[in-house]
Simulated scan of single mutants.
Amino acid sequence: MPLEDNAGAGQPQRTNAAYAIPEDEISLRDLWEIIAKRKWLVILSMVVCLGLAAAYVSLATTVYESKAMVQIGKVAGQPLNNSLQLASALMNRYTLVNTEQANKQLPKLYAVTPDKADGSILTLEAQGRSPQEAQQYLQGVIQRLLAEDHQRYQQLVGVRQAQLKRLQTQYQHMRSAADIKIGKGQADSTSALLLLEQFRRTEALTHIQSAIANMENALAPNNTSPTAQTLSPRYDPIPIAPKRGLILVLAGLGGLMLGVFLALLQNAFRK
């Protein structure tokens, strides 16, 4: 009997120990009660964060963006400029050396990006304090680029056109000389030397004809074209910065989280 009493007495103790709730744990209901009691602290935190965010948004410089696209010219199928090198050169030309001043610079050339599908197409992005400022600044950058590339394009095309003209003149001279010699040779009996000479002249004329055809094909519009603006700088009235709505939403959420943290911290200190 004493053994049975001891066993019965020990069983409830083990059961209570298994289902006991630790004192340092807190339920969601307790958490809600703590926050509800200090709701004004949470609201005050949100108001302060929203106020700071609103002050920043009102004082920050509004930035607008304008985009345009340029097709790099080519001569005989070869581009006038390497797209990556041209993009780097443009950014270096229009970006200040001092990084801090470059970040504050407006208007400015923000980015020059080669197209992934076609490397000869560049997308230029400029930023300004107004849509008009960004658009006009980008138009000036593009006009200078087109003027410089047009000058180089004219030089390269001029060289190839001169080569084509020389080939055409040479062909005409050789053709005329061949016709005269053939006319004289008709009075004489055909000889092996005359046939050999005619064969050589015909082969030379064929070679020059092929060179002329290749040169004309290289100067055709599909292989030779100047740098052109394919998309004019657009006028976008929607600012890209600051993101007012996003900033205010993040400020509200941050204020809410800060208020909950302060409420829990205050409750812990009071305990």
Results as ranks from 00 to 15, higher is better:
residue 3 L to E: 10
residue 3 L to Q: 11
residue 4 E to V: 12
residue 5 D to V: 08
residue 11 Q to G: 02
residue 11 Q to R: 12
residue 19 Y to N: 12
residue 22 P to A: 10
residue 22 P to E: 09
residue 24 D to W: 09
residue 25 E to G: 10
residue 27 S to P: 11
residue 29 R to F: 06
residue 29 R to P: 01
residue 30 D to K: 07
residue 30 D to G: 11
residue 31 L to G: 03
residue 32 W to T: 03
residue 33 E to W: 06
residue 36 A to C: 07
residue 37 K to T: 08
residue 40 W to Q: 04
residue 41 L to R: 00
residue 48 V to T: 13
residue 51 G to A: 10
residue 51 G to N: 09
residue 52 L to A: 14
residue 56 Y to D: 09
residue 59 L to M: 10
residue 63 V to S: 04
residue 66 S to P: 10
residue 68 A to R: 05
residue 70 V to G: 00
residue 71 Q to P: 00
residue 75 V to A: 05
residue 78 Q to L: 11
residue 80 L to V: 04
residue 83 S to R: 09
residue 84 L to T: 10
residue 86 L to F: 07
residue 88 S to D: 15
residue 89 A to T: 08
residue 89 A to S: 14
residue 91 M to Y: 02
residue 91 M to S: 14
residue 91 M to T: 15
residue 96 L to F: 08
residue 96 L to N: 12
residue 99 T to P: 07
residue 101 Q to E: 12
residue 101 Q to R: 15
residue 104 K to P: 01
residue 104 K to N: 10
residue 105 Q to Y: 01
residue 106 L to F: 04
residue 108 K to Y: 00
residue 109 L to R: 08
residue 110 Y to D: 15
residue 111 A to S: 14
residue 112 V to N: 06
residue 112 V to I: 12
residue 114 P to A: 11
residue 121 I to H: 14
residue 123 T to K: 11
residue 123 T to C: 02
residue 125 E to A: 12
residue 131 P to I: 11
residue 132 Q to N: 10
residue 135 Q to K: 12
residue 135 Q to H: 11
residue 138 L to V: 05
residue 142 I to M: 06
residue 144 R to S: 09
residue 145 L to H: 04
residue 146 L to A: 05
residue 146 L to Q: 04
residue 148 E to I: 10
residue 148 E to Y: 13
residue 149 D to C: 04
residue 150 H to Q: 15
residue 153 Y to G: 04
residue 154 Q to H: 03
residue 157 V to P: 03
residue 157 V to E: 14
residue 160 R to Q: 15
residue 163 Q to G: 06
residue 167 L to W: 05
residue 168 Q to G: 06
residue 168 Q to C: 04
residue 171 Y to K: 10
residue 173 H to V: 15
residue 176 S to R: 15
residue 176 S to M: 12
residue 178 A to T: 09
residue 180 I to T: 09
residue 181 K to S: 12
residue 181 K to W: 05
residue 182 I to T: 13
residue 183 G to T: 07
residue 185 G to C: 08
residue 186 Q to S: 07
residue 191 S to I: 10
residue 191 S to E: 10
residue 192 A to P: 00
residue 193 L to I: 12
residue 194 L to H: 03
residue 194 L to W: 07
residue 195 L to D: 05
residue 195 L to M: 11
residue 197 E to A: 14
residue 202 T to H: 13
residue 204 A to F: 01
residue 204 A to S: 09
residue 205 L to N: 07
residue 205 L to T: 07
residue 208 I to T: 15
residue 209 Q to L: 06
residue 212 I to G: 04
residue 212 I to H: 01
residue 212 I to N: 04
residue 213 A to N: 14
residue 214 N to M: 05
residue 216 E to Q: 15
residue 218 A to E: 09
residue 219 L to F: 01
residue 221 P to R: 08
residue 221 P to G: 13
residue 223 N to F: 04
residue 223 N to M: 13
residue 224 T to V: 05
residue 224 T to A: 06
residue 229 Q to E: 14
residue 233 P to K: 01
residue 233 P to R: 00
residue 233 P to W: 00
residue 236 D to Q: 10
residue 240 I to L: 02
residue 245 G to K: 13
residue 246 L to A: 13
residue 247 I to G: 03
residue 247 I to N: 14
residue 248 L to Y: 03
residue 250 L to C: 08
residue 250 L to M: 11
residue 251 A to I: 02
residue 251 A to S: 09
residue 253 L to P: 01
residue 253 L to H: 00
residue 254 G to T: 02
residue 255 G to C: 01
residue 257 M to R: 00
residue 257 M to T: 03
residue 259 G to K: 00
residue 262 L to M: 04
residue 264 L to Y: 00
residue 265 L to A: 08
residue 268 A to Q: 13
residue 270 R to T: 08
